[in-house]
Design a binder for these strands. Structure first.
Lengths: 208, 208, 208, 208
DNA sequence: TATGAATGAGGGTTCATTCAT
DNA sequence: AATGAATGAACCCTCATTCAT
């Protein structure tokens, strides 16, 4: 072969895909290795055990988004509502693109099984959460926003997107995409979601 | 014996609790039976198999809420925004009270495993979905609401509540409840969520 | 209901049918009771346990044939070869009619599992075996038959019929019966078998 | 270790032995693995499942005999009756040597359980069946044999041997072997059976 | 006499993991 | 670095049987 495909990466990709479709416990190490075309023992060899594989998967995701959002927070050229909207856009794009992993993480966070996962997952979550919270709080302090419920506003932002990600069947019905197309890859639908969220937040946040 | 404890119900209760905490696959029939203090074979005796138990669990939930919401839709004494708010209140209460099952269902709906579950779960979901949709659409037609994105508005309603239900750890931080109290049973917090959602929707829906 | 169907008999009938099709271990007490339309506990109530049911099934078969064959042995109006042929005819008819039970017994006799069954089954078998042996031995002593291998001759008689009973698929091919007909109920085929056996035995037994 | 015992083969040997004694359903995978001194999971590892093990067992038997018999059919140096006798000898030897598996197969063929086994088993059976049929038919056409019932003649050949194999208890009585000896390994008894069959067939087939 | 509920043992199978090579 | 063989625990489920009524 010309390019040596990184086995470690193959396993992570396969795991991400299978975890998304079948859940953590529903995905056997055997299936993951078969999908990744590597030997069964490689998971334990590279990641120690199945849980190590999962944790590595989380870390892989954690990196990029926060830096981008952090810049947003500090950008003096944007108004508060523009920052909110930019955050919403970036966050939506990110979650749509990493839909599988997002769902996997959400499922794990809603369980008390494998609680040590929560730490790593919580950090990712909390990072974005705190950035958004600062944007909102500063906007309120500056008088640009009303005295809103900051934490629940963030829950709305995240929850709306998650809800869209969860109900693929339902989305398929009202997203007006072809049957063989992934609605989450459809630009029209993604724009619709982004515009909706921005309008919703603006209605709620901005003083009339 | 004085009171005959209904074994069938015990099993369902135990399953609801364990599924919520550890997921469907993470909960073994053994564990469920042990928690319910019944013999291992009773699950198969009463429900055929583990999947039958799950389906029965779904059906048990399905019953009450929809009738109540349906009445809402047809109540002529309420304005459109009052209907939306009443729906939000009822839905929030319901999901808070049945938090465990709600999370279990959400997790299953976000997976492609055990797809035959989706039918039963989808019906529950779709029922509430359609009622809310009708309220919104009629409100729009009547000119009481703006030309909003109906489906995504519903996603916001549901998604916000789910997001709150998922992140127990985070909720605990900003809900200001005592450590040993279930924040979802705290009346202050629940009212906070309900008020937030109503205000959010009112901001978005009602013309200025 | 008008005629009260004998439950005991219903169970025996159902068991005979299921044992024949699926074997002793392949037939669950549940299936038997369901086919017999009786309560699950009736098997243990009437027969003690599953093995008792089987033994009772054997006894039910044991009765009729031997008496008929015994009369044959003592009938002075028949020649030796006529006795052999009458025996073959009667035996063939009997085994064809009770095909299921015959197969069940054969299977059990060929296993070392549940050896206590062998006694009851062996008696049935041995009874017929001994009658035929006497016929043959007396025929040899009287000079009507050649000095043949008596025991193996009986094995041929029984084995040929069993072989025909076992291979239903093969029989169906060369028995020239309609697809929906039980070849063992087809008179032509049964006559063919009977004539074949008689001719075979005559060729072997009778001096030229 | 010096000699590496083939685990796969050990399992097959153990299964052959247990299936013969206790039947397919009466032999648990646990028992088989214990007898073979291998881990419980090895059956699934090597054969997929218990049925796969059985099928593999059949295939292992299928190989040798037919080639030998086929050569017989085409050997120009033998007369028709010599071919029949050679076939009978070879077939008897083979079935005596593989008594356990023969009984197992016969039992399975006589049941409607696990019908997919029948294909593989039927092929083995049919192969030998067809060779013998051709020998007989050509002998008849050549005028060496009488106009006999070909199919039932084969049933007699097979059935007689099977009958001897089934009734170990009875065989023990008239085979005149020591109590601790397997009568099927006794050369005298085997010769007796072979001679009997050859004489029986010659009587029936050959014109006087 | 007859039943539905209940039991404990054991069934086949899959799992994550380890080991010798 | 990488593998195929091997392991023991646990999985869900079915079994024949028993018990209170």
């Amino acid at each position: 072969m010309r390019v040596k495909p990184d086995k470690k990466e193959s396993i992570l990709d396969a795991a991400e895909q299978l975890f998304a479709m079948k859940g953590y416990e529903g995905s056997s190490v055997r299936d993951i290795c078969q999908l990744a075309s590597v030997n069964l023992a490689m998971v334990n060899y590279y990641f120690g055990n199945k849980e190590g594989l999962f944790e590595r998967l989380i870390e892989r995701k954690a990196s990029f988004l926060r830096e981008k959002l952090q810049k947003l927070l500090d950008d003096p050229s944007l108004s508060y509502i523009e920052k909110v909207e930019a955050f919403a856009d970036g966050y939506t794009d990110r979650l749509f693109e990493r839909r599988g992993l997002t769902l996997t993480i959400m499922r794990e966070m809603s369980m008390q099984q494998r609680c040590h996962f929560h730490e790593a997952m919580g950090e990712i979550f909390l990072g974005n959460f705190n950035i958004m919270r600062q944007i909102l709080q500063r906007g309120i302090e500056a008088g640009a926003f009303r005295q809103v419920d900051v934490e629940l506003t963030i829950a709305t932002l995240m929850g709306t997107i998650h809800q869209v990600l969860i109900n693929e069947n339902m989305v398929r019905k009202f997203a007006a995409v072809q049957d063989d197309t992934d609605p989450y890859d459809d630009q029209n639908f993604r724009d619709r979601v982004k515009n909706y969220i921005k309008q919703l937040l603006r209605s709620y946040l901005v003083k009339v």
